[in-house]
Nucleic acid binder design. Structure first.
Lengths: 221, 221
DNA sequence: ACCTGAACACCGTTCAAGT
DNA sequence: ACCTGAACACCGTTCAAGT
């Protein structure tokens, strides 16, 4: 897998271990990894720097600040979604595949949802992904504003259910603590083990209906 | 009305103006107001205290910390949604009304979405609202886990579109900045004025289809 | 060119002290 | 009982030094 150990230096050097060079990309990957492991709140500049074998101020030689780190992380996640070959395929098919890829990327990285879903999009790769999606729908005869609306709808659905996919511990204790006051809620949350499967099934089903809804509307015009 | 000063203080008292007493409820309302005006990031303990005519540490005599303030704000917003008369009404109707009320509450307070959607539910009023919803579906013949899933789905949809309802400025500049690289995106974001209406129409339409989907599934069993 | 310690203005929270 | 200043451990960010 990673290039970390392989890169032409199998032999151990004397002296302190050389740390991998600090680059924008290395920072982005470390940030995503840190968020994946410990959540967004744990991704502070100093902790991120420490993980890279460096002090916090050093990061500012490679990125402009925390905001840019968010942009870089978004680009990284989007790279797992973006598929330029979408253009030219039938739009319902393309829309479904996009929706699934989007959902999968965020179930792979559930902890980034908190940051990315509440932060403006500013990075080129994400804007490019949007453009590709709009091109696909444009080729399918969609009007611009409507296509954009469909895009945002899919994003919200995917993010919501991907969040839920992982949200197991969000309200379980409180529901139990609520005890007598909310017996149905307490019972339901007690036995919830594989909500991941349910969330995924719900999402995929809803996505199909969402697409179907647009197909009907489009053909009615 | 009545005599010169109802509540005994129509007359101006000498000395510094008496500030309203500091209570849990006053703190909660001030916090919601502050978030509505300036966003969650602006709702720091010291700014909140300042608005209440007091210093930050004073707040800790009435609330346990920022986490409890979030709980109180959630309870406040939920009080605009919760309708105990839901139980006993036909579930599709009740579900639709719940979905609309939920959406409206968060378009009324778009800035709280960022906090509330990424924070565990711990307050009794919200748990009670969930319980009422589950009771309604239970009376309609729903199985517990499925009902919970439907509830979460509606929440995600409503939150997503309510966020979008207000997200006007989220990616507009960047889309323009993207310029030549993303012409379709740039064009679409240029003319978007009343996205509120579009978002609401999309949401309501999707909500209806969501309910219809469950009705079909339920009657097929 | 790039890393660093020290500094700055801010957080949330605690606590002994005042009244 | 309730408000306060001072303090603590943390933020993100800047910058003059160092090499």
């Amino acid at each position: 897998m990673g290039t970390a150990g392989a890169e032409g230096s199998g032999r151990r050097r004397p002296g302190r271990p050389t740390r991998p060079p600090l680059t924008e990309d290395a920072i982005a990957r470390a940030a995503l990894q840190l968020i994946d492991e410990s959540g967004w709140a744990a991704c502070t500049m100093s902790r991120l720097a420490h993980r890279l074998g460096v002090r916090a101020p050093s990061l500012y030689h490679h990125v402009s600040g925390q905001q840019e780190i968010v942009d870089l992380v978004r680009s990284l996640v989007v790279s797992e979604i973006h598929d330029p070959t979408l253009v030219g395929r039938p739009w319902p098919e393309a829309m479904y595949d996009f929706g699934v890829a989007y959902y999968r990327a965020f179930t792979n990285h559930p902890n980034v949802i908190q940051v990315l879903s509440t932060t403006p999009v500013r990075d080129a790769p994400t804007l490019q992904m949007y453009e590709t999606f709009l091109q696909t729908l444009h080729a399918g005869g969609w009007e611009g504003a409507r296509a954009f609306e469909a895009l945002l709808g899919i994003e919200h659905l995917a993010l919501g259910f991907a969040f839920e996919w992982n949200a197991e511990d969000l309200m379980l204790e409180s529901a139990h603590a609520a005890g007598l006051g909310a017996p149905l809620l307490a019972e339901v949350t007690r036995g919830r083990t594989n909500q991941s499967d349910i969330a995924e099934a719900s999402y995929l089903s809803l996505l199909r209906r969402y697409i179907e809804m647009f197909r009907v509307e489009l053909s009615a015009e």
